Amino acid sequence: MRKPTSTRLLISLLTLVIAATAFWFWNRPSANRPETRAAIPVRVVKVKQEDVPRYVSTIGSVLSLHSVVIRAQVEGILTRLLVKEGQMVKQGDLLATLDDRAIRASLAQAQAQLEQSQAQLQVANVDLKRYRLLSTDNSVSRQTLDQQQALVNRLHATILGDQAAIAAAQVQLSYTQIRSPVSGRVGIRTVDEGNLLRGNDAQGLFSVTQIDPIGVEFSLPQKWLSTLQALVVNPAQAKVLAYVEGDGDSGGILLGEGRLTLIDNQISANTGTLRAKAEFDNPQLRLWPGQLVSLKIQTALDRAARVVPPTVVQRGIDQSFVYRVTGDTVESVPVQVLYQDSTLNVISGVEVNDVLVVDGQSRLKPGARVEVLNAATMLEPTRGAQP
């Protein structure tokens, strides 16, 4: 009866030893097991080489290059309005007419007076010629000849005065036809047909505002003075982009592309800013006088620049750096940011076609093993600075 008990005891001891050995094997120190590093998933991009324009951004106000308030220059009844509100007109187009009957009567009177003076001069010249013949044998006195000569001179002066009166009446008559002094758009009318207009009326009929081309005025800090001066004298005029509701990098709508034309002749002592003006062709009338727009003024062009998305560049304690993929690991490469905007960075310190990490840097350190998620469809830098 003791033998089966010993056998069971031996089996129990063997089972305990096997369990202890298995427990030790699975829980032995990690230093004695081979270390396996998991690859960190990242997305990458290649360094591209492009010509990158540099821009400075500001806010500008759209203004007409030529705006005129149409007023009457003579007194008269407004007889006809020949244009509608909002109509586009050209320089010299007839806009309105005034009652011209009184001025035409004055013109006719001046013309009749001229004809009368010319007839009197004709008679006086005949008498003067006769008196000169008679004076050779003293048939008339010298005094009579001189008086006749004075009469002829006076009639000459009278004719000049009559001609001036005719010219003045013709000018007054021309004022009864109101023509556009500039090509542009007719504004809101303030006077209707049948009203009496006077030359000293403060309120005009309407305004005509030139919209194409159009200007945009803006201000920049005075540190940009030398840059703008160089841009203005450059035969290749600096490009200016106008946006509404943000600039091109933040989803703004491009309204037009213009060129820098003018820098003001002084810097504001109160704000330390200088004013400048750009001119835009505006055939689609997308820019409107009084409108506020976002501007991007091209200040330079970096040729053959090394371009990467902004998320590639990491900020270190002392300098910026990027993670470059070499094989299946990464290395830290210090770089210098030469120019940046919201969609790209121009950097130095890397070569064209270097593969850099664009997403997933938070878990990386030099020498870390990586798994490229977008190897088949390599991301490329997005071109910012493009209209």
Rank of each mutant, 00 (worst) to 15 (best):
Y131P: 12
V56K: 03
R8T: 12
L356H: 07
R33M: 05
T144R: 15
R71Y: 03
V240A: 02
E351A: 12
A376M: 11
Q120K: 10
A230S: 10
Q109W: 07
A236R: 09
A376Q: 10
Q177A: 08
Y175E: 13
G194F: 03
P366Y: 03
Q222Y: 00
S348M: 06
V44M: 00
N27R: 03
L10K: 06
D201Q: 02
R142V: 08
R324N: 03
A110W: 08
I317M: 14
L197D: 05
K223M: 12
L173S: 04
T79Y: 11
N374R: 05
A300Q: 05
I267M: 08
I103P: 04
D341Q: 07
L9G: 08
G92C: 03
Q147E: 15
L262M: 12
Q91A: 10
L364M: 06
L356T: 01
I267N: 06
N153E: 14
A119R: 14
L231G: 01
E331P: 01
D359Q: 13
R185Q: 15
T329A: 01
T5C: 09
F321N: 06
E351C: 07
Q319H: 09
T136S: 11
S67E: 10
V208N: 01
D318G: 06
N195H: 12
L301F: 00
A108P: 04
N195R: 14
Q237C: 03
N27V: 02
L254C: 05
L155V: 07
Y175W: 04
M1F: 12
V42W: 02
N265W: 11
Q210W: 04
S268L: 13
I70W: 00
V56Q: 04
A167W: 13
H66V: 11
R315H: 12
S67R: 13
A300D: 04
A39V: 04
V171C: 06
E115D: 13
Q73F: 00
G256I: 00
L364K: 10
P387H: 09
Q298T: 02
Y323H: 03
I263H: 14
Q49R: 05
K296I: 03
G215F: 09
G272S: 08
R185G: 11
V358R: 13
